[in-house]
């Protein structure tokens, strides 16, 4: 037979326990990633390589799928609608294209241009490209001296256009897998198809990144006033 006082105490205790459980699960859901596939994808990226780039900066993790973390699922704070890294050649990780113009064209004939930073990274936030709609066409251009003086500064060194479109993926590196060319990936985004072509072209590669003495270029020629 139940004791009436114990019964009340038990019921209050159970209610409090249930409330605490709901709060705990809710806080877990909001602070942790409960999607095991996404969580595994993020975990598989591994730790930041502090010796190669400044961690957790605009220069970090070149060639990795940016929007995996920079998405609504997190864990990064900023969300990207498109982001990637441009390399000079197909194999080498250390030769990346700074100040490349990445032009993105949408289905409604909208075009926006973005500039890579000194580590070859570019990213597009939703506020940078309002009403961005897929599919997208993308081209990449590197000129002699982006933003520089002189009549030949904006003359092209190399232009590449994607042969297909982007259907819906926000991370270039999801398809353009770093250093891999096989049945499932065309390889990292590159301006030359062989490293020997890069050797011959001797493209400009910044000795230091980031370089406080050199202000970053943020606008393509068509966007400059």
């Amino acid at each position: 037979m139940r004791h009436p006082h114990h019964s009340l105490r038990e019921r209050v205790g159970r209610s409090l326990g249930l409330f605490a459980g709901v709060v705990l699960v809710g806080s877990l859901g909001s602070s942790c990633n409960l999607d095991p596939v996404h969580r595994a994808g993020v975990n598989n990226l591994g730790d930041e390589q502090g010796g190669l780039y400044p961690p957790e900066s605009a220069y970090h993790r070149p060639g990795e799928p940016c929007a995996l973390c920079h998405s609504a699922a997190g864990p990064a704070g900023l969300q990207f609608v498109l982001a990637g890294t441009i390399f000079w050649g197909p194999d080498r990780y250390d030769r990346r294209v700074n100040k490349a113009y990445v032009r993105i064209g949408g289905p409604e004939k909208t075009t926006k241009c973005f500039v890579t930073n000194c580590n070859g990274n570019f990213f597009v936030r939703s506020e940078d490209y309002k009403n961005l709609k897929f599919p997208l066409l993308v081209s990449v251009e590197r000129v002699i001296d982006p933003g520089g003086p002189g009549p030949t500064a904006e003359k092209s060194i190399r232009v590449r256009r994607m042969s297909s479109h982007i259907g819906r993926e926000a991370s270039c590196a999801t398809c353009h897998i770093l250093g891999l060319r096989d049945f499932g990936s065309p390889g990292q985004i590159r301006l030359y198809d062989t490293e020997s072509e890069v050797d011959t072209a001797k493209p400009p590669i910044p000795a230091q990144c980031p370089n406080v003495d050199e202000p970053p270029l943020t606008q393509c020629p068509e966007d400059r006033l």
Binding site: S163, R181, G184, P186
Partner: peptide, 16 residues
């Protein structure tokens, strides 16, 4: 332009 059938040509087909 996309995924390649890797069971032909000794898996040598490359995307793109």
């Amino acid at each position: 332009e996309g995924y390649r059938l890797y069971t032909i040509q000794d898996g040598s087909l490359v995307s793109g």
